[in-house]
Amino acid sequence: MSSIFGNNILGNNATLVGSSSSTAPSIFPPLYDFPPFFTRYPNASTWTAQRAAWSSLILAYCKAHKLWQLHLSDALETELFHNAALGRRLKHQDAVEVLEFMAKEGQVDWIDESNKTGVNVWWKKPEEWGSVIFDWIDSTGQKGSVLTLYEIAHGDLTTAQEFHGMEEGMLKKALGVLVKRGSAQIFGSGEEMGVKFF
């Protein structure tokens, strides 16, 4: 075989190019260094597998970088969707299709359903976030006290917590779960919005 292809156009053996990301190499699956990963597969069953691989990458990436939201037009320019070393990127319409699939799975929800310009990314489900927040309240003896949403998401006390920096709309959704469970009550509105835990 090598004799037939000894003098090919490339002049040497083509190899898969290594991932450009040195920051968090473990996030990117081997597929990320595989140029066709960035082209939608022509048949449905393989596209399903490809789409699933994209979903897990998106979740892992957002979790590692603590990205609460993806704004598509910006995100498409980042290493998540654009492998600069390969010179390959996922097309806008393919990315939308991946995100639509993720929305069905409850992994993301559209910030604007009509235009589909961005999503909230739930690498933990709202229920899980609710529990994480409640566990923190419980373990720090804050049951019965009132906190503002700002204190929860951006207060000094929560800097070490995984939910620190959480986007406001998402935080409300997570707290909504606790309200339903009967372990929190939300009152006030806007800047003044507070929550009491039981």
Partner: peptide, 12 residues
């Protein structure tokens, strides 16, 4: 392609 044995890179 139809057997998924190769993938296509359409961006080359």
């Amino acid at each position: 392609l139809s057997d998924s044995l190769v993938w296509v890179d359409a961006q080359a």
